[in-house]
């Protein structure tokens, strides 16, 4: 901070009074920077992004689709992770922000059943709950399926959803250009 003595300083010195030099933080540059950052963040903020949070323990596949995420019954299908620092999970899970509940374990996924009993029971439970609460049944389910999930597992999940009349399945993907 450069302090430039004012012309009047000499006069006040002469009159016996000493004026205090003005010194303060120059916030203008910082304000400019903050404004730019704020505008950038507001632009990148999407309300729909808050509807779906990508799960921490799976890697989502990439695709070129641009359908907006929407709120629906949400599931996670995991098959471990190549990153050892990430929690290794296998099977079908309820997509919750905290304390996720396992619906089907690895053993159940690897059986020869076409329909997964655990998932079927869970979906039935959800349908019953909606009926009791008077919420409309939309037949939609959003699945966060890890990119390494084998096709066999995927078909079992789809078949189970279909059997429980969840006819519309939305796969969560990371959008690429």
């Amino acid at each position: 901070m450069v302090m430039v003595p004012s012309k009047a300083a000499g006069a006040s010195k002469a009159s016996g009074k000493r004026r205090k030099p003005k010194c303060g933080l120059q916030l203008n540059a910082m304000m400019d920077m903050m404004t730019v950052i704020l505008l950038f963040l507001i632009k990148s903020y999407s309300a729909s992004g808050a509807l779906i949070q990508a799960s921490d323990f799976i890697d989502l596949p990439t695709a070129q689709r641009d359908m907006e995420p929407k709120k629906a019954l949400a599931l996670i299908v995991a098959n471990g992770n190549s990153d050892p620092s990430v929690e290794q999970q296998f099977g079908v899970f309820e997509d919750m922000p905290k304390n996720i509940r396992q619906i089907c374990d690895r053993t159940e996924m690897s059986t020869d059943y076409v329909v997964l009993p655990g998932l079927s029971a869970y979906l039935q439970e959800q349908t019953d709950f909606r009926e009791k609460t008077g919420a409309m049944f939309t037949g939609e389910v959003t699945i966060q399926c890890a990119d390494n999930v084998p096709y066999d597992w995927l078909l079992k999940v789809i078949n189970t959803c279909g059997q429980q009349e969840y006819a519309t399945i939305d796969f969560v993907i990371i959008k690429t250009k």
Binding site: L38, S46, P69, I174
Partner: peptide, 23 residues
């Protein structure tokens, strides 16, 4: 600003999610 910026950084979607509908 100091309050808003960390809040927006926390909720910002840096990886854009979308849906692929299977019907």
């Amino acid at each position: 600003m100091v309050v808003l910026i960390p809040m927006l950084i926390q909720v910002a979607a840096f990886t854009e999610l979308a849906l692929l509908q299977y019907m």
